[in-house]
């Protein structure tokens, strides 16, 4: 046990990330904000507009998570929790939409 703990004695190493990492993240986010506003005004089919908006939002989210929320510099367990949240969200959305979208295909009156 002593051996185990001795291993960690120097261990409260927190990453102090250089300021420029945060600054570039902010700049990236602001550019993506302009892109998403511009994309909202470009005439395109509804489904495409939604996909583009979601893709940009997902990209912005990954920037915030990786750098502001320190996921990039954190251990595997944090990474696992972040990924699990995303994974379950995707399950919830895919299964719900698979249901609602396919209902009109059924030969019974429904949604």
């Amino acid at each position: 046990m002593a051996e185990h703990t001795a291993h960690h004695t120097e261990g409260h190493e927190h990453h102090v990330v250089p300021i420029r990492v945060y600054t570039w993240t902010l700049i990236g986010l602001l550019i993506l904000l302009i892109v998403t506003v511009a994309a909202g005004f470009i005439p395109m089919p509804v489904w495409l507009g939604t996909v583009v908006a979601l893709a940009i939002a997902a990209f912005k989210t990954s920037l915030v998570m990786a750098f502001f929320m320190h996921v990039k510099f954190s251990g595997k367990l944090v990474w696992l929790f972040a990924a699990a949240g995303f994974f379950w969200l995707v399950i919830m959305i895919i299964f719900a939409y698979a249901d609602y979208i396919t209902r009109p295909w059924e030969p019974v009156p429904g949604f």
Binding site: V46, T50, A53, A57
Partner: peptide, 15 residues
């Protein structure tokens, strides 16, 4: 902040 990143395009912008 991330929640707002999704609210803004989905409610205010698309369409």
């Amino acid at each position: 902040d991330i929640v707002w990143i999704f609210i803004y395009p989905l409610l205010y912008l698309i369409g």
